[in-house]
Each structure stands twice: as structure tokens, then as C-alpha cells.
């Protein structure tokens, strides 16, 4: 299933590498990625594909922990919620 991963927080070296390797180790494929840095504030948005049957709660807890350790807010949300809210 497709999902959106967002990473928001203070910029530092290696954020993308860390998040990507965590996703890869959970068999989550990255389809698209974009990032901006505004005044030291890092925002990364990724479109990802998780294998069917992925334990979403566990994966989001993993990302949460990773974010907690590094002072970032990392979220994974299914794509449908954004489509529902912004597309007719």
C-alpha cells in the first residue's frame, strides 16, 4: 500500500540516509522524495510503497522512535487521507 512519510525538524547531516535505511530494512520502497530546508528547518516528504500486510502500527512506532532519538518528527500515513482531504 502507498503511504506518505514526512520528516520535519532541525537539519543535520545524514537525515535522509538514516530514514531511508530504516525504511529499506523494513522492505518499504521509496517512489518519490522531495525535501526543502528553510532557516535550518528540514522538511522531507516521501511517497513510499509498503508491502501488503505491513504492520503499520509497528512501522510507525519505529519511525517515531527514530525521530525521538534525533529530534525529528517522522510520520507515516496512508496516502488516501491526503487525497480525501484535497481532491474532489
Amino acid at each position: 500500500m502507498r503511504a506518505i512519510v514526512t520528516v520535519i525538524g532541525k537539519d543535520r547531516v545524514g537525515i535522509i540516509a538514516d530514514v531511508c535505511s530504516l525504511l529499506a530494512s523494513n522492505s518499504v520502497n521509496i517512489l518519490d522524495i522531495s525535501q526543502t530546508v528553510m532557516r535550518d528547518y528540514f522538511t522531507m516528504i516521501m511517497l513510499v510503497e509498503a508491502p501488503e500486510g505491513t504492520d503499520f502500527a509497528a512501522l510507525s512506532a519505529l519511525l517515531d522512535d527514530e525521530g525521538e532519538k534525533t529530534g525529528l518528527k517522522i510520520r507515516i500515513q496512508r496516502e488516501e487521507i491526503f487525497e480525501a482531504m484535497h481532491r474532489i
Binding site: T6, S34, T43, R75, E79, F82, M85
Partner: peptide, 12 residues
């Protein structure tokens, strides 16, 4: 495809 500002708006 949903754009970035829409994604961030939802999160906000």
C-alpha cells in the same frame, strides 16, 4: 499526486 503544501497543511 498530492503536492507538498497539501500534505503539510493536513499535518498542521
Amino acid at each position: 499526486m498530492i503536492n507538498n503544501s497539501e500534505i503539510l497543511q493536513t499535518i498542521e
